Computed example of a mutant assay.
Amino acid sequence: MKLSEIEELYNQVPYCKEWNRVKIKEITKGFSNEFKYLIENIDSENNIIEKVFIRISSIKLKEEKIEEFKRTKLLNSITDDFNMTRAIEMGVFEKNNNSEGYVWILTNWIEGTDFRDDLPKLPLKKQYELGLDAGRLLKLFHSLEIKDTSNIYNRDNIERKLRIIQDFENTKDIRFENDELIIKFIKENLDTVYKLDCQKLVLKHGDYHVGNMVLTDTNQFAVIDFNRSCYGFALDEFQRIQNFDIECSVHFSIGQIDGYFGNKSSEILNNHSFWYSFKTFVAMSLISGVHWARTFDQSIVDGMIYRAQEALSHFNNFKDDIPSWYLEFKQQQQQKEATEDIENSKFNEESILSQKKQLESI
Rank of each mutant, 00 (worst) to 15 (best):
E169Q: 15
D133M: 07
S351A: 02
I254R: 01
Y260P: 09
V290R: 03
T295S: 11
L106N: 00
I257K: 00
A222S: 08
Q12G: 01
Y10M: 06
V214K: 06
D197M: 02
F274T: 00
R136W: 04
R86Q: 06
S313E: 14
K200W: 07
H142I: 09
C248V: 15
E188W: 06
A134M: 07
W19D: 14
I42K: 04
E310I: 15
Q335G: 08
Y194H: 06
F329K: 08
Y306W: 14
I56P: 00
I342V: 15
N11I: 15
R86F: 02
W325Y: 15
V290M: 06
C198I: 01
I158G: 08
L137I: 08
N96G: 15
I300K: 11
L138H: 03
Y194I: 02
T149P: 06
M213Y: 04
I362R: 12
E64I: 13
E349S: 05
P120Q: 04
L203Y: 09
A293P: 11
N271I: 03
F318A: 00
I183F: 05
C16D: 10
V250W: 03
E50H: 11
N271L: 02
K73L: 09
D43S: 07
R160N: 10
D118I: 09
K70V: 14
E360Y: 11
G232W: 03
F296R: 08
K336T: 13
H314A: 13
D217N: 15
S285E: 10
